[in-house]
Design a protein around this nucleic acid. Structure first.
Length: 311
DNA sequence: CGTTTTTGACCTGCGC
DNA sequence: GCGCAGGTCAAAAACG
């Protein structure tokens, strides 16, 4: 798997050009793209914001979101919300696996250097989720895991959204209830990746959580699918009712300032990037390199996702 | 006792 | 075809 250039959707923030990697300045220096945008204006965002969770839930459908990123509806996005220190975060090859993704980073500097095992989204491999739980058909005994899957029918991958957050805890509270169903060691990373599934019946949303091996203080969370239900009442009755799910999380230490948020753009010619719609756009319109096609929607989403809660 | 986590086995797709 | 890596299953253990 090393080089799966295929569907990689790696958005490298200001890559070289920005040098934010220098670490400092992330707070005062806004990315060229969205600088000045209301999205970065702590006061300017729309009060009627939508939380990331809500976004996943439906109000903001993936298509819209995708379009905001200039992606195809089926692609995945990677957001990075890093609160705290502007420590460089190397998202490396986000697409280790190949899925298209966008990386939206907040308050972080990113260098595209390595190919860490980071957020790899494989697009086509291991698609077996959702598949029939199996084995009844004579499956029986022998293998306990005899999930047979109809061949030929390629499972379609749900759109995915990933974001990075500086946090000491791996599993960030987002308002929903999750059940861990697996954990795997990640290649080239000392940190394992955990797999969670929404416990709500009939909800097929899954999420993966892993710690960046480049920056251990960063947790990479990837959501897959959309919730087809509201946030569990039990949670709503608490903090979840007052804050956007992704905001109230007590585990996240410190606020995340919207003005520090920025979008990571694809890196020209970076591995796999060329396969992404976005990259293609860039290829065709170099001048657009740091221009988000239509981030108007993004403005609506992002602030709510990482918005600092006013006291 | 119901729910969640742990964990080894297994499945699938891909590259070689 | 084989090996690798990612993803999932499910029994057992842990937890509340």
């Amino acid at each position: 798997m090393s080089d799966e250039p295929r569907d990689l959707y790696y958005h490298d923030l200001f890559q070289d050009n920005q040098h934010l990697a220098s670490g400092t300045g992330m707070y005062n220096q806004k990315p060229p793209t969205i600088a000045g945008s209301s999205a970065y204006n702590s006061q300017g965002f729309d009060p009627s914001y939508m939380s990331f969770t809500e976004c996943l839930q439906g109000p903001m459908d993936y298509n819209s979101l995708a379009s905001a990123f200039g992606l195809s509806p089926s692609s995945s996005e990677v957001f990075s919300s890093v609160e705290g220190n502007p420590k460089p975060i190397d998202v490396g090859d986000l697409g280790g696996g190949g899925g298209n993704e966008n990386l939206v980073t907040q308050n972080s500097s990113i260098s595209s250097s390595s190919t860490e095992a980071g957020v790899e989204e494989d697009s086509d491999k291991s698609k077996k989720d959702g598949q029939p739980k199996e084995s009844e058909d004579g499956g029986e005994s022998s293998k306990k895991v005899g999930k047979a899957k109809k061949k030929g029918e390629k499972k379609q991958r749900e759109p995915r959204f990933a974001f990075m957050t500086k946090s000491e805890v791996d599993h960030l509270e987002d308002g929903y209830r999750w059940r861990k169903y697996g954990q795997k060691a990640v290649k080239n990373s000392p940190y394992p990746r955990s797999y969670y599934r929404c416990t709500t019946q009939k909800c097929t949303v899954k999420k993966r959580v892993e710690r960046s091996f480049q920056d251990p203080s960063t947790v990479i969370t990837t959501y897959e699918g959309q919730h087809n239900h509201p946030i569990p009442a039990t949670l709503r009755g608490n903090a979840a009712a007052m804050f956007p799910p992704s905001m109230f999380t007590p585990q996240i230490r410190g606020p995340i300032f919207p003005q520090d948020f920025f979008v990571q753009m694809p890196q020209m010619g970076s591995q796999g990037g060329a396969n992404s719609i976005y990259s293609q756009n860039l290829m065709n319109n170099p001048h657009q390199q740091y221009q988000l096609p239509d981030y108007g929607l993004l403005q609506d989403i992002i602030p709510s996702m990482f918005l600092k809660q006013e006291p």
